[in-house]
Computed example of a mutant assay.
Amino acid sequence: MIDTYQWRRIGITMLLSASLSLGACTANEGMTDENGLRPHLNVDLQVPGILKLHETSPFSVTVTQANQPVRADEILFQFWPEGSPDRLVTVAGLMRQEGVYTAEYGFIENGVYVVRSRVTAGSLEAMPAKRFAIGEEAVLRLAALEQQEAQGGLALASSDHGSGDHHH
């Protein structure tokens, strides 16, 4: 038989358990946005519409969180020829306005390239990437690669390549 003292202990234990459970739920609420997603950066990587050999062109990213511009701690743009990550070149991004960062880079040969932006803001990081092409032959090759990928015949060299916009 359970006496009054034991009922009190059971009640107090249940009350403490419930308080801890509710406290844990409340603490986690701040870790999600209005859609229930964990905090994340939205990074819109832009490749110039026209790229010419031996001329620098501006690459940019717009960084937001919850539709507000973000002042990033570090923005890096990384460039390499498709299939040759050992030829990677890193250029620091400069803030042009709150949430908008750019880097100038030029190319010395036609081909298919990858640009990846590495964005760090506090404990958050994003690394979107896009492929693009310089030169007619490279544009055709990139279009063929994208068609093969769409048909599931070829995996990207790196899983974090973006939408594969192509430019010349």
Rank of each mutant, 00 (worst) to 15 (best):
M1T: 13
I2M: 14
D3M: 05
T4W: 09
Q6R: 14
R9G: 00
R9K: 02
I10G: 06
I10N: 08
I12Q: 06
I12V: 11
M14S: 12
L15Q: 11
L15W: 12
A18H: 09
L20Y: 08
L20D: 03
L20I: 07
A24V: 11
E29W: 12
T32F: 11
E34V: 10
N35S: 07
N35D: 08
L37M: 13
L37C: 10
P39F: 00
P39N: 03
P39K: 01
N42G: 13
N42S: 14
L45F: 07
V47L: 13
G49Y: 08
K52Q: 11
K52S: 11
L53K: 09
H54L: 13
E55K: 09
P58T: 02
F59D: 00
V61G: 00
T62A: 10
V63G: 03
V63A: 06
Q65D: 07
V70P: 01
R71F: 03
R71C: 05
L76V: 09
L76C: 05
Q78H: 05
Q78R: 13
Q78V: 12
F79V: 05
E82N: 09
S84C: 03
D86W: 02
V89H: 07
T90I: 07
A92C: 01
L94E: 15
M95E: 15
G99Q: 12
Y101W: 07
A103Y: 01
A103K: 01
E104S: 10
F107H: 06
I108P: 04
E109S: 13
N110C: 04
N110R: 07
G111W: 00
V112T: 08
V114W: 02
T120V: 15
T120W: 02
G122P: 04
S123V: 15
E125G: 09
A126T: 01
A129T: 10
I134S: 01
E136A: 15
A138K: 00
V139M: 15
L145F: 12
L145H: 03
A155S: 14
L156R: 15
A157W: 01
S158K: 12
D160E: 12
H161V: 10
G162P: 02
S163T: 10
S163F: 08
D165C: 08
H168W: 12
H168F: 10
